[in-house]
């Protein structure tokens, strides 16, 4: 068994010590500090980036908040304007309605007055015609007519 050939032990040990010592120094002095630096730089960079991302997120949230506030304000303002317009229009309509109603009432009154006048006039004409007709009939029937007596009789009948 070559593993138990004792004369090979010393050279193996000597070279093991040399190579392991070299590797240890190379790793601990040169290689591992470099790896550690690279890893640390990356960790820092990632932490920085995360910080920045968090800051951006905060800014975004603020912007959204401001936007929502502005939106709410605009909405309230729009509501106010709409209400105001509605009120104003309502008021104006009311005023115009009242004016028109007043004008119409005036016209109705004038018309009624005219109707009454016309009716009076018509009635007056009816009396005159009745008197004339009655007078004529009496004159035809009796040959003579008392105009004032006929007028009286027509007036009594017309009442």
């Amino acid at each position: 068994m070559p593993q138990l050939e004792f004369h090979t032990f010393v050279p193996q040990l000597v070279w093991l010590v040399i190579v392991f010592a070299y590797l240890y120094v190379m790793m601990s002095r040169v290689a591992l500090p470099r790896v550690a630096t690279v890893l640390e730089e990356r960790r820092d960079r990632i932490a920085d980036d995360l910080d920045q991302a968090a800051q951006f997120q905060r800014q975004t949230e603020e912007a959204i908040e401001a936007y929502e506030k502005a939106l709410a304000e605009a909405r309230a303002k729009a509501h106010d304007i709409a209400q105001e317009t509605r009120d104003r229009l309502h008021e104006e309509t009311e005023r115009q309605r009242l004016a028109i109603e007043a004008r119409l009432a005036e016209k109705i009154a004038a018309a009624e007055k005219q109707i009454a006048a016309t009716k009076d006039a018509a009635l007056q004409n009816v009396r005159a015609v009745a008197v004339d007709v009655a007078d004529a009939i009496i004159a035809q029937l009796l040959g003579d007519a008392d105009r004032s007596a006929t007028e009286r009789a027509v007036d009594t009948e017309l009442k």
Binding site: H7, T8, V10, P11, Q12, V14, W15, V19
Partner: peptide, 10 residues
């Protein structure tokens, strides 16, 4: 007195 021969192991 140390045998430090360079072997296939080395």
């Amino acid at each position: 007195s140390i045998d430090a021969s360079f072997t296939n192991s080395s």
